[in-house]
């Protein structure tokens, strides 16, 4: 069985994995990172989006063995010492979640979007999140939350560390 060494949310893990093990199953079942949900079987829904070496990927479509030597960030790696990341706080304050199932993926995809474009228009936010489905169809507030977080991340409060 191949051995992998993966950094997940700042901690390094070494494990033997079956080649067919999906990254999302590795995160959830082996590391207990259940903040990343599984939404579909077809790479459509984006619920399982995480960052791999800083770029968003759908962790149901990456093998755990492909994450060997890579750095993974899940939604669980965003907050620092109980302080929510600006995106998490904005989703909370703008009521950008209803059932909440799509939220981790939405936040990770939004983080990827803001890395490339710190001040996106509503249309750019919608395009940036096109790979993430909200079955509650609560997109209005999701867009609003991303816009709000973008504003906060451009001018972070002095006492707040913002990552990444």
């Amino acid at each position: 069985m191949p051995r992998v060494r993966v950094e997940v949310d700042g901690a390094t893990y070494e494990d033997d994995v079956e080649p067919r093990l999906l990254l999302v199953h590795y995160l959830r079942d082996r590391l207990g990172k259940v903040g990343t949900p599984i939404g579909c079987d077809t790479t459509n829904c984006g619920a399982c989006t995480v960052l791999m070496d800083g770029l968003s990927v759908k962790s149901c479509s990456v093998l755990a063995v492909q994450a060997d030597g890579r750095e993974i960030t899940t939604v669980e790696g965003l907050g620092i010492d109980g302080v929510l990341h600006p995106l998490q706080r904005a989703f909370h304050e703008e009521h950008a979640l209803q059932c909440g199932f799509c939220t981790p993926g939405m936040i990770m995809a939004a983080l990827d979007l803001l890395r490339e474009n710190a001040d996106p228009s509503d249309e750019e936010i919608r395009e940036g999140l096109e790979g993430n489905l909200c079955r509650c169809t609560g997109y209005q507030n999701i867009v609003r939350a991303v816009r709000r977080a973008a504003g906060e991340m451009r001018t972070p409060a002095r006492d707040r560390e913002v990552t990444p």
């Binding site: 990927v57 990456v62 940036g128």
Partner: peptide, 9 residues
């Protein structure tokens, strides 16, 4: 093609 996450891979 698809969406940003898919285009990354």
């Amino acid at each position: 093609v698809a969406d940003p996450a898919v285009r990354h891979r």
